[in-house]
Amino acid sequence: MTDRCNLRCFYCMPEEGLNWLSRTELLSYEELLRISSMLVGMGVNKIRITGGEPFVRRDLMELLSSLSALNGLDELTITTNGVLTAPYVCELKRLGIRSVNLSLDTLDAARFFAITRRDEFAAVMHTLQELLKHGIDVKINTVVMQGKNTQDILPLVELTRELPVSVRFIEEMPFNGDGHQFSGIAWDYVRIMDEIRQRHPQLKKAADEPFSTSYNYNIPGHKGNVGVIAAYSRTFCGTCNRIRITPTGILKTCLYDDGVLNVRDQLRMGDSDEQIKQVLLQALNNRVVDGHEAERRAKSAASIHQSMAAIGG
C-alpha cells in the first residue's frame, strides 16, 4: 500500500526514515484494485495487504471493502504494526477479514522503544486485545535479533499458553534500508527452535499448510502455537508460491530479487487487462529456483539493502 511507516525499526530503516515516495509514484487505489482483480481472475485466491504500515494510507479501508467483494478471492489478510489499527478492528471483522499478522518484536515496553524508536507499545497491545476480542485470528511476527530481543523468545512463547495466537519467529534479513553490509545472522531457525525446546521439550511438530513459509509446532496445554520462518536460510523456497507487488507496482517473485516487471508502467501506458496478464504470466513462469539464486542475479547490491517497507514487508 505504501512505503511510509509510523515506526522506525532499526532493522528496517534509518532513524530519520527514508526518501518517501511521492503520491504519483505509488499505485493509486484504482490501480491496486485493477491489479488485484486481474490476479484473482488468474487464480490468485489470497491477498495480503502490507506496507510500510497499511493504516497510514487514507484509502485503505475503501480498498479493503472493494477487495472483499472480489468474486474468487477466498482470503483477505493484513500485516500491520498495530499502532493505528485498533479503531478499525470492528470494520475489519465486518468485511470478513479473519486473520491479521501483527508485527511485535518484544513484550517489553523499553525494548519496544529501543527497537522501533517510538513509544507505541501500549497502542500495539491494545490492538492485540481488540483483535482477539473480535475473534480475528492473530499471527504475531517477531524478528529475532542478536543482542536486541532474544530474551523475548520464551515470554512470547508463553503468550500462547492462554491466548489463541500463533507466534512466528523470523530470521533477520538484510533489508535494512541503510546500505550497511549485512554479515549474516547469529540466530537461525535451528537455534531459535533449540531455545524453545530447552523450556518446552514436549514441543510437537504440527502439520504445515500447503505452501507455508513457516514450520509450525504445538505445545501441549497451550491454546496457541509457535512457528519459525527461515527467511534468511531460505529453506522453504521450493514450495513458495507467493508473489509481491511493491507500492510502486514492481512485481517481485522473490523478496531477494530486484523486481521482474513494472506493472504500474504497463497500466499507465494503457495496456489492456489481457496484455498485462500475458506479461504477468511470462514473469511468473520464469521465476528463479530460490532466494539464493535471486540474490545472485540481483542487478546491484543496493537492491539487497532496500528497506522492507519499500518492498512490502
Rank of each mutant, 00 (worst) to 15 (best):
P201I: 07
H200C: 03
K205R: 14
V226D: 09
S214M: 10
L203Q: 01
E195F: 04
A207W: 04
G224P: 14
K205N: 06
S212M: 07
G221W: 14
R234H: 03
S233N: 02
S214D: 10
G227N: 14
I196Q: 06
R234D: 04
K223H: 03
S214N: 12
P201M: 06
Q202N: 07
I229C: 13
I219K: 10
I229E: 11
R197L: 06
I229H: 12
Y232P: 04
P220W: 09
S212Y: 06
F211T: 08
E209S: 07
R234I: 01
R234T: 04
T213G: 01
E195K: 11
A207D: 08
H200N: 00
A230M: 05
S212D: 11
E195I: 09
K223L: 06
Q202L: 00
P220R: 13
K204H: 00
P201A: 08
G227I: 13
E209V: 02
V228L: 13
N216P: 03
P201S: 09
K205P: 09
D208N: 09
I219S: 11
I229A: 09
V226C: 13
I196Y: 07
V228G: 11
S233C: 00
D208G: 05
N225A: 10
E195V: 09
N216M: 06
R197G: 02
P201Q: 08
I196F: 07
T213A: 10
R234V: 03
D208M: 05
A207E: 10
N216Y: 03
G224R: 14
A231F: 10
I196M: 11
S233F: 01
P220K: 11
F211Q: 12
H200L: 01
I219P: 09
A230Y: 04
K204Y: 02
E209H: 07
Y217R: 00
A231N: 12
G221L: 12
I196A: 08
P210K: 04
T235R: 04
D208C: 06
G224T: 15
F211R: 09
Q202I: 05
H222D: 15
Y215I: 15
H200G: 02
I229W: 12
I229P: 11
N218M: 08
L203H: 01
S233R: 02
R199W: 04
R197V: 01
T213V: 12
A206C: 08
R234S: 00
L203I: 08
K204D: 01
T213D: 04
N218T: 12
I219E: 08
S233D: 03
A230V: 00
Q198P: 05
L203P: 02
P210S: 05
A231S: 15
A230S: 15
Q198R: 13
